[in-house]
Design a protein around this nucleic acid. Structure first.
Length: 419
RNA sequence: GGAGAGGUGGCCGAGCUGGUUUAAGGCGUACGCCUGCUAAGCGUAUGUAGGGGUAACUCUACCGAGGGUUCGAAUCCCUCCUUCUCCGCCA
């Protein structure tokens, strides 16, 4: 959510930002409603003051045993008048907040304009592996352990089922990643995998992404589409001390996405599935330091790929590719040797105070003064299926075996997988 | 699922037989006094949001959320959310 003062002062900025993000908003409608509401509030406050005074007089007169029928009658009348005005204000309020919830965050000034074609490659690392043979895609390499038909029988198409070494590899990776983060000072969180609408609204999956999430109608809950939701919401409606910042968290969750309307596009194998596993990093930061924190998160995530020796590149997303809530976002893409393309494996975003305002997450400045909104950030660290794709495809050898990175080999108890 | 008890300002906590409480008191915090230093002590201030004023200031709302009763609701009634205790069921 954006600051109302900004909406009033710089409506054009807000409108332009929405256009850049391909969101249709009607800022003029908001401005009109806001003005009407404030005018009504002036009337209401005057009437309330009148009623408060009358009530006090009634109270005093009654205590003294005097008759207060006149004041009571007057108060009854103002009460009726108030009820009418209050009804109108509450209509304005719900319209206003409905509109505000659908206004996207404003991109930072250094975010390139345009569509995904305008994304900027910030840097690359590693060399794309060369093969003396035609490298296979992961669905061939994993045909015995990755069983989409079985998953389909259980849950439906585009769910995945791992058996044997694939299941074990995934578990090993999750465990290693969490260790990697906690060793860097993050606090590990194991949170619910479902969330109520309020939580989804705070992190801004709602209202926009309603159709992309699985809803448990029976209990009015959603399956989390990312760990960002439960981990960030841990701090919803909290007032922190400035010295509590930064708050650095990490946690594992499955991610459930309906991927409505994305059938037939890049969704063979593990590329795009309805449930995937992910380790997420979340950070609550002082507003003056979110910029550095953003880069720190990015480099931390990229560092994991260096340990795993997977070539990657980092993209600074253009305005049109930026998510609803983000002010600035870097994607990390890794190389898939079997498909010969880049796969997004991490998305590291700075939301500034956009989520904090929705979720009422504040800190008390050390020098005194009013509580201020924190900045929230998060980044995948990392998403599992595409990481597995890359490990398996890039590690394949002429004899059909798969060579594992040292750190994973140690944990798996073998440096080569024989599929 | 059944029964009961709670949800009050950053935290704790009174008020809950409706009207000098426009929320007592404490802790914490800030400033001042005192002190060789620290602690203690004393004094003052200290919720959030919105509106008005150059300004000290002032007005309105908010006591889990929403609705109702009433001239007037933290206080009474209803619905929902949530925490705790006991019972039942269950991994």
């Amino acid at each position: 959510m954006l600051d109302r003062k900004l909406l009033r002062k710089e409506p054009q900025t807000v409108a332009d930002a929405a256009t850049a993000k391909n969101e249709k908003i009607d800022i003029q409608q908001w401005l009109d409603a806001d003005r009407s509401k404030r005018e009504l509030m002036l009337e209401i406050e005057a009437l309330r003051k009148q009623r408060n005074t009358l009530s006090k007089t009634v109270s005093i007169k009654k205590r003294n045993g005097e008759d207060a029928e006149e004041e009571m009658q007057k108060s009854r009348n103002t009460g009726a008048e108030l009820a009418d005005l209050e009804q109108r204000v509450s209509e304005f309020n719900s319209r206003l907040s409905e509109m505000e919830l659908s206004f996207p965050n404003i991109p930072d000034s250094d975010v390139p304009e345009g569509t995904e074609d305008n994304n900027v490659i910030v840097r690359s690392w590693g060399t794309i592996p060369e093969f003396s043979f035609q490298p296979k895609p992961h669905w061939d390499l994993m045909s015995k352990v990755f069983l989409p038909e079985a998953a389909g029988k259980i849950a439906g198409s585009n769910f995945i089922l791992f058996r044997g070494w694939a299941a074990r590899l995934q578990r090993t990776l999750i465990s290693w990643m969490l260790d990697y983060h906690t060793q860097a000072g993050m606090d590990e969180v194991w949170a619910p995998f479902v969330a109520r609408p309020e939580s989804m609204t705070a992190t801004a999956q709602l209202p926009k992404m309603d159709d992309d999430m699985y809803r448990i109608g029976h209990d009015n809950l959603y399956l989390v589409p990312t760990g960002e939701v439960p981990i960030t919401n841990l701090y919803r409606d909290r007032l922190l001390e400035e010295t509590d910042l930064p708050v650095r968290l990490c946690g594992y969750t499955p991610c459930f996405r309906r991927e409505a309307g994305s059938y037939g596009k890049d969704n063979r194998g593990l590329n795009r599935v309805h449930q995937f596993e992910k380790v997420e990093m979340v950070r609550l930061e002082h507003p003056d330091r979110s910029e550095e924190a953003h880069l720190e998160l990015l480099n931390h995530a990229a560092g994991m790929l260096e340990v795993l020796d997977i070539p990657y590149r980092i993209l600074l997303l253009a305005t049109g590719d930026l998510s609803f809530a983000a002010a600035k976002c870097y994607d990390i893409e890794i190389w898939s040797a079997g498909q010969e393309k880049w796969l997004e494996v991490s998305s590291v975003s700075n939301f500034r105070d956009f989520q904090a305002r929705r979720g009422n997450m504040k800190y008390k400045p050390a020098g005194g003064g009013k509580p201020r909104l924190v900045h929230t950030l998060n980044g995948s660290g990392l998403a599992l299926p595409r990481l597995i794709i890359s490990l398996v495809e890039n590690g394949q050898q002429p004899d059909g075996t798969i060579r594992l990175p040292k750190i994973i080999a140690e944990r798996m108890g073998t440096d080569v997988i024989k599929p």
